[in-house]
């Protein structure tokens, strides 16, 4: 069966920086408290003229250049986002136009697990139609966070990461696991703006178009489900935690990542993280960290790379790759 190879990658972040020093002053807390809570020193935030799609176009362009392709070569575009350009049409439509893509376009919203879900969708799509796919994760949660929300304000950053997938018969995909628990919709949500609670003067007055988080619940269930997902994926591949060369988790919060590392037994020194510089960029966080690891020459042919994420919903997922092929 045709599988995928990853032949291009890229990231894009806005120029505007929001430092932990600034946020400590805004929220009236110690800088050290923020650092101990999440491990983030700086985030990026979109400015005028920037959006989820503009970042996605920029990251997508870099990934295409890196693969030596153009938009005309792409058969399918998948954009993972939870902060869409607008409610309709899909963000992928804007990115499709911006990159001059020839083929299909659709969004996937699995919140912060969106890139992992998108990668598995792409694996299925490329088996059916062995032509290049562009997969982008892009989010701008700075725009969905209330200015006075300390819990989310210290976490979120904006950014985008993209990969180009091309068909191969030498599989990269060793194992994967996806899951969801729809009973956890209250843990992290934006209540207004959809069909359940359409935007109105009242929802705007109450700030219901902003994200709401129950941080403790997210912590507990993110750790539980991600640990379970990683364990199942390793078991499926018949690998031990020490066999993993690079761990690229959703860059949510250093405390959650540390807990997942601790409970799975994955080697801490093989963790790939850029959380300190970009914050939690949601669907973009995994491809952004992967891009930096690749650009830094950290990942070599034959390495085992584990991608693991979790997000609102709740959703979670893990993908285990043999970089360069030879997975099967």
């Amino acid at each position: 069966m045709t599988s995928f190879s990853i032949t291009g990658w890229g990231l894009a972040v806005p120029e505007q920086r929001v430092t932990t020093t600034e946020l400590a002053s805004r929220f009236g807390v110690d800088e050290e408290w923020i650092l101990s809570r999440c491990g983030i020193r700086e985030r990026r935030a979109v400015g005028p003229g920037q959006s989820t799609a503009t970042l996605a176009i920029e990251a997508g362009k870099r990934a295409l250049e890196s693969a030596g392709l153009t938009g005309a070569d792409i058969a399918h575009l998948i954009v993972a986002t939870a902060t869409p350009e607008q409610l309709s049409p899909a963000t992928s439509a804007f990115v499709h136009h911006g990159l001059g893509i020839a083929g299909s376009a659709h969004d996937v919203n699995a919140e912060c697990t969106g890139f992992v879900y998108g990668l598995i969708q792409a694996a299925g799509l490329i088996a059916l139609d062995p032509r290049p796919i562009l997969l982008v994760g892009s989010d701008t949660h700075s725009l969905t966070t209330a200015p006075d929300d300390r819990d989310l304000g210290i976490l979120v950053g904006d950014g985008s990461g993209a990969v180009v997938l091309e068909p191969t018969t030498d599989s990269w995909l060793m194992a994967w696991n996806l899951g969801a628990d729809g009973a956890r919709t209250e843990s992290l949500k934006i209540p207004a703006g959809g069909s359940r609670l359409p935007t109105s003067e009242e929802t705007a007055r109450q700030g219901l178009h902003f994200s709401q988080i129950k941080g403790n619940e997210i912590y507990l269930h993110a750790v539980r489900h991600t640990v379970g997902s990683v364990r199942k994926t390793l078991e499926m591949a018949k690998l031990q935690p020490d066999d993993v060369d690079h761990i690229v988790p959703h860059q949510a919060n250093l405390r959650i990542i540390s807990s997942i590392i601790e409970h799975t037994g994955l080697p801490r020194e093989r963790l790939v993280t850029n959380l300190e510089r970009y914050g939690n960029c949601a669907s973009a966080s995994i491809p952004m960290a992967l891009t930096e690891a690749l650009d830094g020459g950290r990942i070599c042919t034959g390495d085992v790379v584990l991608l693991a994420g979790f997000g609102a919903g709740m959703t979670w997922g893990t993908v285990l790759l043999r970089w360069g092929g030879g997975a099967s």
Binding site: S36, R37, Y219, L220, S259, H263
Partner: peptide
Amino acid sequence: IDSLDLMEWLYSFQE
């Protein structure tokens, strides 16, 4: 001690 320590304790306790 913060609330995330309590969640970490709870997760370990549940396991």
